Each structure stands twice: as C-alpha cells, then as structure tokens.
Amino acid sequence: MDDEPPNSWFSRLFKPREKPVLLEQRLSREAYEEYHELLMKARPEVEGSKLRLRLSEGIVELNEGVLRVRAKNLKTAEKILRNLHHYEQPPSLWPAYGLSYSLKRRRRPIL
C-alpha cells in the first residue's frame, strides 16, 4: 500500500470534496441598474425582480440590491464575478471568458 501513487483510486475516494461557494455583493441603486442592464444581454431567467443567469460553471443571481454568484469552488466563483463585465463585448467573445447565453428551451406539445 505504501508504494501506491498519490493519485490512486483510494486517495480519490477519500479526498475531501470542495463545498459549493456563494459570493454575495451588496449593490447601490446605480450599480444594481448597471448590472441589470448588463445581465439582460445574456437573456436570464426572470422571476419578478430577480434575474438568474445559468452559466456552465455556476449561477449568477441579481436581486434588488444584491448580486450573488454560486459556483462549485471559490476560484470559479471569483472568475465568474471578475468576468461579468465582458458581457459588454459582442456575444461571440463570451465563451472565451466562460460566459454564455442562458438557454431556454420550450417543450413542444406532442400531437
């Protein structure tokens, strides 16, 4: 057992898992309006005054006065928060920063 490589199945099985992270940022009224305008370019899910944008690596939520980023780890959450301003660029460049459109699929009725 002592001569097993560190990446053996045993070490992977008992490796501590990273906990999901929630970054929360309080916003002024002006900052909220700017983020609202910015996130609307990515076609988020809208529930009343709450915007939810699902990305491949996490979720961005904008509620009245609060911006929340949920991700699988702190590094990913910080990257998403850092790259949000790239929504100002053309959508063709978004994938380079880990951003995307929020894809909404409508189910068609079966005839």
Score class of each variant (00 low, 15 high):
S102N: 15
K72F: 05
R29A: 15
L74D: 14
N83P: 05
L103M: 13
E30C: 03
K19M: 11
N63S: 15
R26Q: 15
P90Q: 02
H36A: 11
A71Q: 00
E45T: 11
M40S: 14
E47Y: 15
K79T: 09
Y32V: 02
P91G: 12
I59N: 10
N63G: 04
G65N: 08
L93E: 04
Y97R: 03
S11L: 09
L39N: 03
L38N: 02
N7I: 06
E37K: 11
E4W: 11
E30P: 01
V69L: 11
E78C: 00
L99D: 12
R29D: 12
K72Y: 00
A42E: 07
D3S: 02
A96S: 06
E33G: 04
H86L: 10
R26D: 15
Q25D: 10
E64Y: 06
K75N: 11
G58I: 03
R29L: 15
R29M: 09
L51A: 04
L13V: 13
R17L: 10
L74Y: 07
P109Q: 13
W94S: 11
P90M: 07
R68N: 05
K41H: 09
R26T: 12
R107S: 08
S56A: 14
K19G: 05
S56D: 08
E57V: 02
F10M: 07
F10E: 13
I80Q: 11
D3Q: 09
E34V: 10
L22V: 05
V69S: 07
L84N: 06
G65S: 12
P5I: 08
A42W: 00
R70T: 07
W94R: 06
E45M: 09
K72E: 11
P95C: 05
L93F: 11
E78K: 12
K79L: 09
K50W: 03
V21T: 14
R106T: 04
E4K: 02
H36I: 05
Y32P: 00
M1A: 11
K104H: 15
